[in-house]
């Protein structure tokens, strides 16, 4: 089962390598990972997605908590949450395909952020499965390049992850 884990991490040299190293060392897989400083510059927030069962997720969160640089860990699946991912996708767009890509873009509320005579670069945001669906939708055209940010997630309602 796919899980999303949010981690507050000391924004220090080497801290991220401990998190990533833990996953390698304990044979846990990482599907996606994103990290950036928060409003408090001493803290980074990491969002990790992984595929595993309940027993494993318990071990993962416990071992993450054991790392000295990890301030807090939240398994977003414990409650309601929102997830978003950003994708930039460069597509060969010539002739009739240009209109077709534009229509898909509208359907997915994507934005064309760069144009040349034979390419479009499109930005799409949303839950990961929406981005997957967009890739399928334009799959008949030639996809030149895809870059995805990895998932960011946050709990719904009053629940907050902070120190």
């Amino acid at each position: 089962m796919r899980r999303i884990i949010a981690v507050l991490l000391e924004n220090e040299a080497g801290a991220l390598s401990r998190v990533v190293g833990l996953f390698a060392q304990r044979n846990y897989n990482i599907e996606s990972l994103n990290v950036a400083p928060t409003e408090d510059p001493t803290l980074s927030r990491v969002t990790l997605t992984t595929v595993c069962d309940d027993k494993k997720i318990e071990q993962i969160t416990k071992h993450l908590n054991r790392l000295i640089d990890v301030v807090k860990v939240l398994d977003l699946f414990d409650a309601e949450y929102v997830e978003r991912e950003l994708m930039l996708i460069k597509i060969r767009a010539e002739g009739a395909v240009r209109d077709e890509v534009k229509r898909s873009c509208d359907v997915f509320r994507g934005q064309i952020i760069d144009v040349t005579h034979n390419t479009y670069t499109v930005q799409v945001t949303g839950p990961s499965d929406k981005l997957d669906a967009f890739i399928r939708a334009v799959g008949k055209t030639t996809i030149l390049e895809v870059v995805r940010s990895g998932v960011s997630g946050i709990s719904r309602g009053d629940k907050v992850l902070s120190v």
Binding site: A13, G14, S17, R18, G21, Q25, I68
Partner: peptide
């Protein structure tokens, strides 16, 4: 050293 020892320390400092 911080990298080599990482999996076998409780914590490390540079």
């Amino acid at each position: 050293m911080v990298g080599i020892s990482r999996p076998v320390v409780k914590h490390s400092f540079l």
